[in-house]
Amino acid sequence: MDRELLASDVNRACRLQGQFQLRSGQISHEYFDKYLFESDPQLLRRVCEAMVPLVPADTDLLGGLELGGVPLATVLSQLTGIPTLFVRKAAKTYGTCRLAEGADIAGKTITLVEDVITTGGAVRDAAGALRSEHATVSTVICAINRSTDPVNVLRDVALTVRAVLMKADLDHVS
């Protein structure tokens, strides 16, 4: 895989300039609109192919976070053969009332799959919720880590972040 070419293609597809409020509440002059690369089948596949070697060997389930992590986890599941979970932001209040749709998670090792991480708020919430249902969650794989402290962004909740691309990779090719 040509990492610089992938960074260039992702950057060209999804970096927007302007003023944007992030999930964390922070204001940014740029935004990585992941849906612009996730909706391109070839680019989505290339990002997921780059994720394959990042998946820990002990992974039982891939947990795609609502909404942007779902297409990534689905394609990654196809490439690895590891079953996928679809992790909601909150448990639904009807039907099964589940937080995670798919296989039973109790006692399973789940690797979370996210699109873009800045502060890690959604990942932090999902990991806590899955752990409260007796799952083991210690790793998150993301397409883009744009955190100002990419090494420590989720260390406070004992999560290792493995990223396909760092913001610096995208800045380098822009």
Score class of each variant (00 low, 15 high):
Tyr35Leu: 13
Ile117Asn: 04
Gln78Val: 06
Ala57Gly: 04
Leu65Lys: 09
Ile82Ala: 01
Arg46Met: 13
Val55Thr: 10
Thr74Leu: 10
Lys108Glu: 02
Glu114Pro: 13
Glu66Arg: 07
Thr119Gly: 08
Val113His: 06
Lys108Thr: 01
Ile27Arg: 13
Ile110Arg: 12
Leu61Tyr: 10
Ala127Leu: 08
Leu99Trp: 06
Ala90Cys: 09
Arg124Pro: 00
Arg46Asn: 15
Ile144Met: 03
Asp115His: 01
Glu114Arg: 02
Leu79Ser: 04
Ala127Ile: 06
Arg88Val: 08
Gly64Ile: 03
Leu67Asn: 14
Leu79Thr: 03
Leu43Thr: 08
Asp125Ile: 01
Glu30Pro: 08
Thr96Tyr: 07
Tyr35Val: 13
Ile144Ser: 08
Val52Cys: 09
Val52Ala: 03
Val113Thr: 10
Lys108Ile: 03
Val55Ala: 09
His29Asn: 15
Gly64Met: 00
Leu61Arg: 01
Glu101Lys: 08
Ala122Val: 08
Leu65Trp: 10
Asp60Gly: 01
Ala143Tyr: 03
Ala126Gln: 06
Asp33Pro: 02
Ile82Ser: 06
Ala135Lys: 11
Ala126Val: 00
Val47Cys: 14
Thr111Cys: 15
Val47Lys: 02
Glu49Phe: 04
Leu72Glu: 00
Thr118Ala: 04
Gln78Tyr: 07
Ala106Lys: 06
Leu130Phe: 05
Thr74Asp: 09
Asp60Trp: 10
Ile144Val: 15
Ala106Ile: 08
Ala129Val: 12
Val123Thr: 12
Glu133Leu: 15
Gly128Ser: 13
Leu67Pro: 12
Gly95Asp: 07
Ala100Met: 06
Ser132Asp: 14
Ser24His: 10
Ser24Met: 11
Pro83His: 04
Leu76Met: 06
Ser77Ile: 12
Ala122Asp: 02
Ile27Phe: 06
Pro53Asp: 13
Ile144Thr: 09
Arg98Tyr: 04
Arg98Glu: 15
Leu72Cys: 02
Ile117Phe: 05
Pro53Lys: 07
Gly128Arg: 11
Thr119Tyr: 04
Ala143Met: 05
Gly64Cys: 09
Gly120Thr: 03
Lys92Cys: 08
Thr136Glu: 07
Gly120Ala: 10
Ala127His: 05
Leu72Tyr: 00
Pro83Trp: 07
Cys97Phe: 05
Arg131Ser: 09
Val47Leu: 14
Gly63Glu: 11
Leu79Pro: 06
Leu99Met: 09
His29Arg: 15
Ser138Met: 03
Leu76Asp: 03
Leu54Val: 13
Gln78Trp: 01
Ala106Arg: 13
Pro71Lys: 01
Ala103Ser: 15
His29Ser: 15
Glu38Ser: 12
Leu62Val: 05
Leu85Ser: 08
Leu67Asp: 12
Leu36Phe: 04
Val55Lys: 00
Leu112Ser: 09
Ala122Gln: 06
Arg88Pro: 09
Ser39Ile: 02
Arg45Met: 10
Leu44Pro: 11
Tyr31Trp: 05
Thr80Asn: 01
Lys34Asp: 14
Pro53Asn: 07
Val47Trp: 11
Pro53Val: 14
Val55Cys: 05
Val52Phe: 09
